[in-house]
Structures are given as structure tokens and as C-alpha cells.
Design a binder for these strands. Structure first.
Length: 280
DNA sequence: GTCTGGCCTATATCGCGCAA
DNA sequence: TTGCGCGATATAGGCCAGAC
């Protein structure tokens, strides 16, 4: 699961390419995005919270924790010697991967963008502010869900539009991320996620460098629309019947005709291989 | 950073057949 | 794995405050 706090969202969403995102977003979208980011900034009160927290934390600190704290200060790292570049400052990006993916430390700014807020979530955030401190989380959630149900479609529209804008911006950011991120970073992230038993991150299918369609697949795409689905059958049965029918047509296709599809496949396969070796 | 409760939404996956 | 369709189902992730 991705972290939720915006302190994590901001660098991931805007970090790598702020100007690019500005271009991508219309002024309104940007406003929406900013509202999303700043309102969700739990860290705004966090400074405040941090101070009160540290106060209470201080008084509640157990001896064990105190000892640990002491230890942590005792083992505080000495400042790096002047003139010696830090590991991350290395000009050689390959150095990061020399000890294997497991050893790669992925920076926050390198993590993939988080999914955009949904319409309901936008409403939820707005309502939580309105409700304020009264009631438990559960009570608030129930209340807000009831309010959401009472909204007319027209009233909901505003939230859906906002969510749509965020979704579009996210799609662009995500595409940029996959384009600009070293594939080894993604693998390193997944190595960590696998170890934590978390689901892996996959490049969305529409962004993948897909293998070209096989000769048969290409043929099927061409003729599919000309083979009608049997309306007397269920969707599944009709689709299966059509697939079987197209398979039969392929077998009956003259060799010369088949060759046309095969040639196209081999041509695209070469291009695919070339692109893949370029990526590697 | 994670967890808490309750809810909604978006997305992914599955099954089916076919050939390479 | 690639494409298609599409309903059913599963899952992730979003919001909120604050303790740990």
C-alpha cells in the first residue's frame, strides 16, 4: 500500500517535473491539484502537532525509549569529511546498482505517483472539515456516506469533474514516470515490495512495449467485425463460437494470404527487439 | 510509517476460444 | 503473451486525526 500523507504525495506528484506538469494541467486543474495537495497536508498542522506531540511524547517516553534515544544520539553520525562526495552525490548512476537491486535505496522522489483522489474522497475531505471534531471516525464516515447518497447527480458532478481532472493529470505524470525512470528502480521497488509481501507495481499495459501481434492475431483483428456474434447465445458462448469460427477461417486461408500477415509480424518483431535492446 | 472505522471508487483479474 | 467482450469478483487506495 502506498503511503497516504501528502508530504509523500507532493514530491512524487510534482517532484521530478514540475514545469512539465504545469504545462499538462490547465490553470483550473492546477488549482484543483494544489487544493488536493495542500488541504491534505496533514503536515500543515503537523508542525503544530509535532510540537505538542513532542511535548507529550517527552513526558510519556519510557526508560527503554530514553535509552534508545540516548543510544541514537550517542551513535550519531559524524559529519562527512569536507571535499568527499556523499554516496548519493556520485556522478556515476551505475554505482547505485553495483551491489544488486536489494541494496538500492530508492528515494522518495523516485517512487511512482500515487493514484489520484476519487470523487467521493474529495467530498469526504470537504465534509470532514465541515463536521469538525464531533463524533468518532466511524460516525463521521457513516454520516458523510449518507450525505453523499442524498446528493443529486448534478451536485455530484462537481466532484466527478474535479476527480477527472486529477485523473488526467495523474495519467500524464504516470506516463512521464515510466518514461523517465530507470527500469532497475522499478525492479528495486518491487524487490522491496515482494519482501514486504505487498503487491508488485506493474507498468500499465497501455505503456508497455508490447510484443507485436502474431500473424494470426492480426488476421483475427481484421476479420473479427465481419463475423457476427450469435444473438441466441450468451456473450461468453457467442464469443467462443466466433473465436472458433475465425480459427477455422485462418486454417482455410491460402498460404499466400497468410504470408502477408507473417511478413508483417516478422518486421514488427525486429522493431520490437531493437526497441527492447535500446531500453536495456 | 502504520493503524484505527466506514465508506466509495477505480482498477485489475478471471474466464472462454483461437494461433504463433 | 497478444486481442476481443463483458459480467462478476477482488483488491487497492482515497479521506479524516492523532497515538504510537
Amino acid at each position: 500500500m502506498f503511503p497516504r500523507l501528502v508530504t509523500r504525495v507532493v514530491p512524487r506528484f510534482f517532484g521530478p517535473n514540475v514545469s512539465g506538469l504545469r504545462v499538462a494541467l490547465s490553470a483550473r486543474q492546477l488549482l484543483v491539484a494544489r487544493t488536493f495537495l495542500t488541504t491534505a497536508q496533514v503536515s500543515e498542522p503537523a508542525a503544530k502537532r509535532g510540537s505538542t506531540k513532542s511535548k507529550s511524547a517527552k513526558s510519556k517516553t519510557t526508560p527503554k525509549k530514553k535509552a534508545a534515544a540516548k543510544k541514537s544520539t550517542a551513535t550519531k553520525k559524524k559529519p562527512a569529511k569536507a571535499g568527499r562526495p556523499k554516496k548519493d552525490d556520485s556522478n556515476d548512476p551505475e554505482a547505485r546498482f553495483k551491489n544488486g537491486l536489494k541494496a538500492v535505496k530508492v528515494k522518495k522522489s523516485e517512487l511512482p505517483p500515487v493514484k489520484p483522489t476519487t470523487a467521493y474522497s474529495l467530498f469526504l475531505r470537504e465534509q470532514y472539515k465541515e463536521i469538525g471534531q464531533t463524533g468518532t471516525f466511524g460516525e463521521k464516515s457513516t454520516e458523510i456516506a449518507a450525505r453523499w447518497k442524498q446528493l443529486s447527480e448534478a451536485e455530484k458532478q462537481r466532484y466527478f469533474e474535479q476527480a477527472e481532472s486529477l485523473k488526467e493529470a495523474f495519467a500524464k505524470t504516470q506516463e512521464e514516470w515510466y518514461k523517465n525512470t530507470d527500469p532497475r528502480i522499478l525492479r528495486a521497488i518491487n524487490v522491496k515490495r515482494r519482501a514486504e509481501n505487498k503487491p508488485l507495481i506493474h507498468m500499465p499495459t497501455h505503456l508497455r512495449n508490447k510484443r507485436p501481434l502474431s500473424s494470426y492475431m492480426r488476421y483475427m483483428l481484421e476479420v473479427r467485425d465481419s463475423v457476427e456474434l450469435d444473438p441466441s447465445l450468451s456473450t461468453k458462448e457467442a464469443l467462443n463460437k466466433r473465436a472458433a469460427q475465425i480459427g477455422k477461417m485462418w486454417h482455410e486461408l491460402p498460404a499466400q494470404e497468410k504470408q502477408r500477415y507473417t511478413d508483417q509480424y516478422h518486421k514488427e518483431l525486429e522493431e520490437y527487439k531493437a526497441a527492447k535492446s535500446e531500453q536495456a
